[in-house]
């Protein structure tokens, strides 16, 4: 519309960009996502109390359809699928979290170095980022796993290799925009060393966007780890990992409950993370949000 022709309300120059608009916390989508995440974390913590059975306990008849006794049925070894789905949160969430933390720390350091030093260092780091991004993430992760051997932790390492560049890009671009803001310039003029300016003036402005990015990437981490486990390259039996449960279920095609429930668990976690991440991204300053694309 033609809003640009209207006179803008007087602009107040804030010393710091506020990272979220307050309205972020009133968005229904974000609240739903947050509630879901909290529920899932509780589910992981309270797993032993929520489920009557253990995740690798083979007490029941095999391939029982969902019933009052076994809500999600039983699997090919007579294990309770509900218990395995509940306990699965204890596998997927910590590994995904680990992945996001490692990738964001590496990416942040790389991006900060690139943005701070500029010049050829910037060139090398960012080209390396481009390079990694050119690789198909799952396939490269498969190659790394094949080189290191299967296992969830190796899968995490493999995915870290392919996911740090996005953080590096965001941090670098934030750094470059913020560096030119008047208040940073002015503290430079006041003789503040640039390393100190980076810490005092820039850090608060980078942390917010990084959290948003991490929320968005968390969902992706859960997805890709589950995918690798589905392919047999991540979690190894008998661990109750959702991806490998779906994979087990795919071998018994007519026993739909084997794969439907763990798959739904993945969907719910990722959806919740994306609801939160997306709401936060919308609440970001539009200039910051641009760096995410």
């Amino acid at each position: 519309m033609s809003e640009s022709s209207l006179s803008a309300p007087e602009l107040v120059v804030l010393p710091r960009r506020r990272f979220l608009r307050r309205s972020a916390w009133t968005q229904p989508l974000g609240l739903v996502g947050l509630a879901l995440l909290v529920a899932i974390v509780l589910m992981a913590v309270l797993a032993p109390w929520l489920s009557a059975h253990g995740p690798i306990e083979q007490g029941a008849r095999r391939f029982m359809a969902p019933s009052a006794e076994h809500w999600f049925g039983t699997d090919q070894l007579g294990r309770d699928v509900f218990a395995r789905v509940i306990y699965g949160a204890r596998v997927s969430l910590p590994y995904a979290l680990q992945l996001v933390i490692m990738a964001s720390v590496i990416g942040t350091i790389a991006g900060a170095i690139a943005g701070y030093f500029g010049g050829w260092i910037d060139g090398v780091i960012m080209r390396a980022a481009d390079l990694v991004m050119a690789f198909p993430d799952i396939i490269l992760a498969m190659a790394v796993v094949a080189a290191l051997g299967p296992g969830l932790f190796n899968a995490v390492l493999a995915v870290v290799v392919v996911s740090w560049p996005i953080y590096a890009r965001v941090v670098r671009s934030m750094l470059l925009t913020i560096r030119d803001e008047p208040y940073v310039q002015s503290s430079r003029l006041l003789g503040v060393s640039s390393a100190r300016a980076l810490w005092v003036d820039v850090r608060p402005n980078v942390v917010g966007p990084l959290i948003v990015l991490a929320a968005l990437e968390f969902g992706h981490a859960v997805l890709i780890l589950a995918g690798l486990s589905f392919l047999g390259l991540g979690a190894q039996p008998p661990a109750p990992e959702w991806g490998s449960m779906v994979s087990d279920g795919s071998k018994y095609f007519d026993k739909w409950w084997l794969s439907v429930f763990p798959g739904l668990a993945i969907l719910l976690v990722v959806l919740a993370a994306n609801f939160v991440g997306d709401t936060l991204r919308d609440a970001l300053d539009p200039r910051t949000a641009k760096a995410f694309r």
Binding site: M1, S2, E3, S5, L6, S7
Partner: peptide
């Protein structure tokens, strides 16, 4: 001056007022 409503007046003639 800006905010006096002169542009809105003009846009209304064309039916181009903002949403």
């Amino acid at each position: 001056e800006s905010g006096s409503g002169k542009t809105l007046t003009a846009l209304s003639v064309l039916g181009l007022l903002p949403g």
